[in-house]
Design a protein around this nucleic acid. Sequence first.
DNA 1: AACCAGAATGGCAGCGCTGCCAAAAAAGGC
DNA 2: GCCTTTTTTGGCAGCGCTGCCATTCTGGTT
Lengths: 339, 339
Amino acid sequence: MSGSKLTMEFKHQATVTLAEVAEAAGVGESTVSRVLRNHGSFSGKTRERVMAAVERLGYVPNRIAGTLASTGSRLVAFVIPSLSNIVFPDVLRGASAVLEQNRYQAVFSVADYDPGKEEALAAAMLAWRPAAVMLAGYEHTEGTAKMLRASGCRVVELLDLDGDALDIAVGFSNRAAGRESAAFLLRRGYRRIGYVGHDLNRDTRAGKRFSSFCETLDANGTPLVAHEILGGPSSVENGRLGLERLLARATDLDAVYFSNDDMALGGYFHCLAQGIAIPSQLAIFGYNGLDIGRAIPQPLSTIRTPRVATGEIAAQLIVANAPPQAVDLGFELIEGATA
Amino acid sequence: MSGSKLTMEFKHQATVTLAEVAEAAGVGESTVSRVLRNHGSFSGKTRERVMAAVERLGYVPNRIAGTLASTGSRLVAFVIPSLSNIVFPDVLRGASAVLEQNRYQAVFSVADYDPGKEEALAAAMLAWRPAAVMLAGYEHTEGTAKMLRASGCRVVELLDLDGDALDIAVGFSNRAAGRESAAFLLRRGYRRIGYVGHDLNRDTRAGKRFSSFCETLDANGTPLVAHEILGGPSSVENGRLGLERLLARATDLDAVYFSNDDMALGGYFHCLAQGIAIPSQLAIFGYNGLDIGRAIPQPLSTIRTPRVATGEIAAQLIVANAPPQAVDLGFELIEGATA
DNA sequence: AACCAGAATGGCAGCGCTGCCAAAAAAGGC
DNA sequence: GCCTTTTTTGGCAGCGCTGCCATTCTGGTT
């Protein structure tokens, strides 16, 4: 870089204001504002003069000021549990595409599956007066719920439908997913079924799948034979390790349900490495329907969830200022070759 | 939900302002502001009175107004190429942890590997007057660079060091990665080497790795035998397909370099499915060092990149208002079992 | 030529907060 | 008890923009 003088100059924001543009264009401030937002009426000639001045001065509108002066902001706040689990980037991807198209701006923070942290982050988010706050699921602290209700801003709860929404909910039923997974395995004739999962206290949606999975097995008179729950987040390595441990305790399983595809892939690799034939010796079933599950030699049997669509729909509802509602996007059972 | 009256009430933001808190606490506005920001001096008694009023009214400060009134904002803007490629969520994860701790707020948009879109999104970001804009790599349009320079806000270019930084750069050399990958394969005795990659015009960092990989092979007198480049983004499925196509054309390869681990995993699965022995019949080498690469039966040979650390360091430099600099975080070659 | 609707424009008061300054209160110092 | 220093406090002018309202132009109409 260069000398300190230049650095100093550099630090002073070259803050061109709307007033300066107005002056340069020889028009009033409100005229510039109208032209820039293409709102209200103005002549073509004026428009050209303004745009020329904008161009010449390199004016960049200040949305902070604009938001303060007008009413609602065009920020949408996401408080997500994790960025490691691809589920949430997928949701963000869907949402951000729609938001960008509508000149909304996505803001996010990561609560790390911790309701207390979620509350703190939601509070910090509300300070930006977003148009909406988007959260994962229904399990929030009392404080979070109260704060969100009082804020008057829209709230969207994502990826879960088993509970009461604060405002809008977009997703699918995790209980139904657990149920259908169990029904599928039973239909296929599996009876000695085990489970490998990650920390369910934190990932409550995985917990819901697990409990309704078990209920379905119970109702069939063939309860879960064994389960192995690992602390920490879901990962391929934990899935591998979990299955290894499970099989050490329960030797005669014919199928294993995993908390999600990452975990299931770990199980699949364990079988590959140990020469356990899939599905004849052991069937494997996951959850999420990740692309990678279709690229392994035997496509993974799993449930595909509409993650990107969840983000898209959520964003669309906010952009359209839709009334409170719960949108069920469903899911798709993929038969695959592992169960 | 309930009747329209309630809905109406609900819509009116219960906007408690600082002035109202001041009135309720029986103190001046500036006193409330000082207490809330814990800045300047005030008595313990006053503090209690203010906090009680804040609690009672459920006051949430308005950061929009605060940012406008003070100078710099605490927003950090990310313009990333993709959210599908886990690389960028990883960077965001590292950065957001640091930012949250310092009361900064992350804002993002997805440019989809399109420089034109990047320019538009960067412009939209600048309108929020962020403390910093973070982008992937050095390949920006003329307009983007000019705009960023003129903005006076900090700029961080991530995940690349082969080029000239606008301000701060944090990452590692993709050219060095390509070089070392080639050197490793040569050291292991592979001579008939191929390449499978995804769209290099868009992912310029992958392009840099590829070109320095080829240069290294050339310098050794054993140039690349064949390559297969697929349009579209990297994915496991594209890796599988790419290797299938490559092997159809070049039957006597002894190693294949992939544009990243996703692609390499696809190649690995193709070999598994086709009964191609790894690495004796064909060696496979990736890039990124994803966790999943270590959980497959034969750990993937690859280069592990410090993605989370890239985000962390970038955020730390911004929080500390560090001077312009390039930070090389290096990478680690993982020998694995596939090459 | 007088009149009028409608288009085009400018002025200015805030949006809710922070930063500065001056005033008031508390705390010492002799 | 009087004066100085330090701490605590309130008032108020903006930050850059939008929204409202009043005003000035246009271009017909009668």
